[in-house]
Structure formats: structure tokens, C-alpha cells
């Protein structure tokens, strides 16, 4: 394995998945066990109202902050931050739209909300992972 691959970005991605996705999901299962209910929600049911989109916006903000403090040129920081912010906002807008449709009793397709928030969250997550890898590489180059 190449020397520059530290576990930092891997830990970071793992923590995000563990605390943001698997922890709430396992909490629902433990709640069901404690209350002895026959209730085993899948992530697609737990996050079907677009909650992953809200989580993605928070992730995009934290990675944007890392990018801001990096040694990349200001133009690069701006391009990366705008891309992260746009994809994060689009992901969060799925949650907002689902809430608005639900609150106003408009036509609501929860399956569509889940698919949209899942795909946009996957985009934010993959951009965040690659950004952290690039930041890791840059740190090594700067310290050489």
C-alpha cells in the first residue's frame, strides 16, 4: 500500500457512516427490541423523508471548512467549496421539499424522496472523500 495513504480519511469516512447512518439505524432496532415490537426498519424507511440530505449538508460544510484551511490556491478552494455547497444544498432541499409537501398535504412520493436523497447524499459523500484524499496528499507535499 502506498506510503501516503494514512488512515485519516478512512477513519473520517467510517465515522461519518457509523455516526450518521448506522447509529440511528441500530438505535431503531434496539428500541424495537426493548419494546418487544416486531419492527425492523430498513435505512430506506428510516431516512425516507430525505433526512440524509440534511446530514449531507452538514458534511459538505465540514469538508468545505477543511478545504478553506488547506494550502490549495484560493481559486481551487472557491471551486471546491462552491461545488460542495451546491451539492449539499440540493441534497438538503429534498428534505425541505418532502417536509413542505407533507405539511401541506400535497402529493408526496416517499419512494422518490428516498431515492433522491440517497443519490444526492452519495454524491456529497463521494466528493467529500475525494476532497479529504486530495487534502491528505497536499499536506504531504507541503511538508516535504
Amino acid at each position: 500500500m502506498p506510503e501516503w495513504i494514512t488512515a485519516k480519511w478512512l477513519w473520517w469516512a467510517g465515522l461519518y457512516l457509523a455516526l450518521g447512518v448506522f447509529l440511528p439505524w441500530s438505535m431503531t432496532r434496539s428500541w424495537a427490541r426493548r419494546h418487544q415490537k416486531d419492527f425492523k426498519p430498513a435505512p430506506s424507511r428510516l431516512f425516507r423523508r430525505g433526512e440524509l440530505g440534511l446530514l449531507s449538508l452538514l458534511l459538505a460544510l465540514s469538508v468545505s471548512w477543511d478545504l478553506e484551511r488547506s494550502g490549495f490556491s484560493p481559486t481551487m478552494v472557491a471551486v471546491g467549496s462552491v461545488l460542495l455547497a451546491m451539492s449539499g444544498i440540493m441534497a438538503a432541499s429534498v428534505w425541505v421539499e418532502t417536509y413542505c409537501r407533507d405539511a401541506t398535504s400535497s402529493h408526496l412520493d416517499l419512494r422518490r424522496s428516498w431515492v433522491a436523497s440517497r443519490n444526492l447524499s452519495l454524491l456529497v459523500f463521494s466528493i467529500s472523500i475525494v476532497t479529504e484524499i486530495l487534502l491528505d496528499r497536499l499536506t504531504k507535499v507541503v511538508h516535504q
Binding site: M90, L120, L122, L123, S126, I129, V130, I133
Partner: peptide, 15 residues
Amino acid sequence: SDPAAAAAYGSLLFA
């Protein structure tokens, strides 16, 4: 969400 999935897979391939 249609192009988002394709862009995400492209991004992961880049990684």
C-alpha cells in the same frame, strides 16, 4: 438525483 448518482460513481472511480 439522476445525474447525481452518475457523478457519484465517477467520483468514486476517480478516488
